[in-house]
Computed example of a mutant assay.
Amino acid sequence: MARSLLVTGAAGFIGANFVHYWRRKYPDDCIVALDALTYAGNRANLAGLEGSAGFHFVQANICDNPRVLAILQEHRVDTLVHFAAESHVDRSITAPDAFIETNVVGTHSLLQAAREYWLGGAEPPPHRFHHVSTDEVYGSLAPEDPGFHEAQQYQPNSPYSASKAASDHLVRAYHHTYGLQVTTSNCSNNYGPYHFPEKLIPLCLTNILRGLPLPVYGDGSNIRDWLYVEDHCRGIELVLQDGVVGETYNIGGNNEWRNLAIVELLCDELDRRFRAESALGERFPQAPAASGGSARDLIRFVEDRAGHDWRYAIDANKITRELGYSPVETFETGIRRTIDWYLANENWWRPLLHR
């Protein structure tokens, strides 16, 4: 039977990838894509979907409870997938208020609307509120620590991660207090198409192509577990299909890299592309490789971020064991796909550099 999904943050990086993925897999489902279109929301991320049968875009803020409730009622939504969030740690350090408003108040507003719509009658219909969170709620790991697991104590260290931790707790509370049918997933760092170019991988890609410095915090030794965004979408799909209501599932890439090693990999891969494809030098004459140089010369070490967590890593054994999840992309194949996409979609990322 066809579903009716409300996807919040649908014009953002992961949300847009999820919408495209779900549309390919389940073309008969109704998708309502909701986004406030703040700086990181880009309606162009949904190109090719608007105007198609069963797809609806709504520009609205998740804090607008009456509007969300009306959307749930109008489209008879049975599945809400909640991506909408402020997510850039640096921004949370300099301007935390927006993170509290969107990530905490906004999530609570959605939960209120979902409770009123799904639990307001005598016989609640089958439904699912899936909340997308982050591994950053667990804090930081030492070099030899095992990866974060679902029963890990929360120890958020930035206003961003603290706001996401609060939203996780609210989702859990609405399940245990009111019976709302919820699931939560905590993922590691995503990368891939439609990634807003303030984050590490797209920032480095676009800066190399423009011959601009590549800022690396501290000595670049911080470690992250990287997950190709489509693999994240596959994990959420499994949770929606077969996940146990009330449970949390960690989705990771089993793929830890130091930040500096990531930057060097991107430099070397783009240098190789320029050597193999002369047309790239004509398209991007400011890139070092266009004149025989090396992108590594652009690397600049900058003052470390305040409260910078040293290492994140996900233990994904639960979702693998219970739902059969495993990433399809290796980091090498995922990075190649990502570079291919950015080289082919200059018209997408160029305008975003001025936001």
Rank of each mutant, 00 (worst) to 15 (best):
Q112N: 15
R67T: 09
A53L: 02
E116K: 14
L119D: 11
L111N: 01
G51Y: 01
D78H: 01
G51A: 00
S140M: 10
E101A: 13
I100Y: 15
S52M: 04
A122I: 10
A142G: 12
F57E: 05
F57M: 04
G106C: 08
R91V: 08
Q59T: 12
D78W: 00
A70Y: 03
R91T: 12
D78N: 11
R128Y: 08
A95V: 10
H88D: 09
I71F: 02
R76F: 02
H88R: 11
G106V: 07
P124L: 08
H88M: 10
Q112E: 15
G51H: 03
E101D: 13
I93D: 05
V104R: 14
H75R: 12
H56K: 06
T79K: 06
V58M: 05
E136T: 09
C63H: 08
R67G: 02
Q59I: 03
W118E: 02
A53F: 02
G106Q: 07
G120D: 13
H127C: 13
A85H: 06
G106S: 11
L69F: 14
V58D: 05
Y138L: 10
E101M: 11
E116I: 04
F83A: 01
S52Q: 12
N103H: 13
A85L: 07
G51M: 05
S140W: 07
P126L: 07
H88L: 14
H82M: 06
S87T: 11
H82W: 07
P96G: 09
A113V: 03
R76K: 13
G106L: 06
